[in-house]
Amino acid sequence: MLFAVICNDKPGSLQLRMDTRPDHLTFLEKLNADGALALAGPFLDSEGKPNGSLVVIDAPDQKAAELFAAQDPYAKAGLFASVEIRPWNWTFNKPETA
């Protein structure tokens, strides 16, 4: 089942995001290699600077999705003001149907 992990950064935390980004990307690359990453990317503010994340993962259940989110280096670094994890149905433009 797919889960959307919707994260909002704490205000004024761009430097923390940039400092932690290499570890975050390594984390996502492993998830991708394992076939569990559907898509990922940052939200942007009005100046085009990252201020949050959207990561869609394939996980067996809500608890597994929550464990994934807790292991993200951004989460471990205290970057996020909030994290919402919701089941998600990819309806349009799925790669296997494109």
Rank of each mutant, 00 (worst) to 15 (best):
A70R: 13
K94V: 15
F43G: 02
N8K: 15
Q71W: 08
F92P: 03
I57L: 10
A65V: 05
G12D: 03
N89M: 11
S53Q: 11
L39W: 03
V83E: 10
L16K: 12
L44H: 13
L44T: 09
N89E: 11
N89W: 11
Q62D: 04
G48R: 08
N8Q: 12
T91K: 11
R17C: 00
E29M: 12
G52F: 00
F3V: 00
E29W: 14
L31W: 14
M1E: 04
M18I: 14
K30I: 15
M1F: 01
S53D: 12
L39Y: 07
F43H: 03
R86E: 11
G52Y: 02
C7N: 04
V55S: 01
L37Q: 01
D58I: 02
D34E: 09
D9H: 00
P42V: 04
V5A: 00
V56I: 10
F80A: 14
A81Y: 09
L2F: 02
F43Y: 07
E29P: 03
E66R: 15
D45P: 06
K10G: 01
K10H: 05
A65G: 12
A38P: 03
N93K: 12
D58A: 11
E29K: 08
Q15A: 14
D45M: 10
Q62M: 08
M1R: 00
K30Q: 06
G78P: 08
L25G: 04
T91S: 09
D34R: 03
V55W: 01
L14F: 06
L25Y: 02
P60I: 08
V5H: 00
L67D: 15
A40M: 09
R17A: 02
F80P: 02
T26Q: 13
A77V: 12
A75K: 12
E84H: 10
T20E: 01
N93Y: 10
P73H: 12
D19A: 11
L16G: 05
R17Q: 04
S13R: 05
S13K: 07
G12A: 07
F27H: 05
F43P: 01
A75R: 15
A36T: 08
M18A: 07
L54H: 14
N89Y: 15
A65P: 02
M1H: 04
V83Q: 06
L28C: 08
Q62T: 13
L79M: 10
C7E: 02
N8R: 10
G12L: 09
A70H: 13
T20K: 00
L39D: 11
E47K: 06
M18R: 14
C7V: 01
K76M: 08
F27M: 05
G12S: 04
L25R: 11
F80V: 13
W90R: 05
Q62W: 14
K63A: 05
A69G: 02
F80S: 04
A69S: 10
A77K: 15
I57F: 01
D34W: 09
M1P: 01
K94P: 07
K10W: 03
F80L: 15
T20V: 12
T97M: 11
L54Y: 06
S46T: 08
T20N: 07
L39A: 12
G78K: 14
D45A: 06
L2A: 00
W88H: 04
A70V: 12
L28N: 07
N89S: 15
A70C: 13
N93G: 09
P60H: 14
V55K: 01
P73F: 10
Y74G: 05
A4P: 00
N89V: 13
N89K: 11
A98G: 13
